[in-house]
């Protein structure tokens, strides 16, 4: 029981939905991506700001074709094309690389569960405990990759546990698979993140990550 409560307490109430307080490998990789992008973006913004401010200094040069050609070389070819292409190419490749790492690939450790969104509740099923169904709380083992098969019973919803991984939509007629993993046992807040009508704001759920013993107990029907 203590193990269940600790991560929540550590994270504090205000961070229970925070993407920048990751508690699983997917959310962790994305948080790193965010911090790097933030630093890069701040640097680029500062560069643009400095260039703009400097543009207001009295210029000493004589206008003419030669000066125009020089400006074109600096501003359009070097900055406009060279700089932007380099930065963006690097970022694109990195983004795709991280994206590949988050995919739900098969593996021996992987646990499969099902999540069905409906206005305004979530129902969960478990491949390892056929017939078992829970509402509002998804039970998973901590430290193991879990593939959530996401479906909808009515309109479009989205399954999102911010501290564990990104979100994936529940689209009527389709099953989308999202890989989540909790590093430590505990409760993690989940949300529906696609507008679904008047009950949308309260459309939430909880992910309860168990330690090994707790998970076995849950599968046996004792959880």
């Amino acid at each position: 029981m203590v193990a269940t409560v600790t991560p929540l307490a550590l994270a504090g109430c205000e961070e229970r939905l925070s993407t920048v307080h990751p508690a699983g490998p997917a959310a962790d990789a994305i948080a790193v991506l965010w911090w790097v992008m933030l630093i890069g973006a701040a640097a680029i913004f500062a560069l643009v700001a400095v260039l703009l401010v400097m543009a207001f200094r009295r210029s000493e040069e004589h206008p003419g074709a030669e000066a125009d050609a020089r400006h074109e070389r600096i501003w359009i070819k070097a900055m406009g094309l060279g700089f932007t292409l380099t930065v963006l190419a690097a970022l694109t490749v990195w983004g795709i690389y991280i994206g590949e790492r988050l995919l739900p690939r098969p593996g021996p450790e992987v646990v499969s569960v099902g999540a069905t969104g409906a206005q305004w509740t979530w129902r969960f099923t478990y491949a390892d405990a056929p017939g078992r169904q829970t509402e509002g709380v998804l039970h998973i083992p901590a430290g193991r990759p879990v593939d959530v098969g996401i479906e909808s019973a009515d309109v479009i919803h989205s399954f999102w546990v911010p501290r564990l991984a990104g979100k994936l939509d529940a689209v009527p007629g389709h099953t989308n698979v999202l890989r989540i993993q909790a590093d430590a046992p505990g409760d993690y807040a989940g949300l529906s993140a696609e507008f679904s009508g008047p009950g949308y704001t309260g459309h939430r759920f909880t992910v309860r990550a168990h330690d090994e013993a707790g998970w076995d107990a849950f599968l046996r029907g004792e959880g």
Binding site: V93, I96, G99, E100, L103, P104, R105
Partner: peptide
């Protein structure tokens, strides 16, 4: 470029 960079169908 992703045709040579990513997995095809997941």
């Amino acid at each position: 470029l992703p045709v040579v960079m990513t997995s095809v169908c997941i």
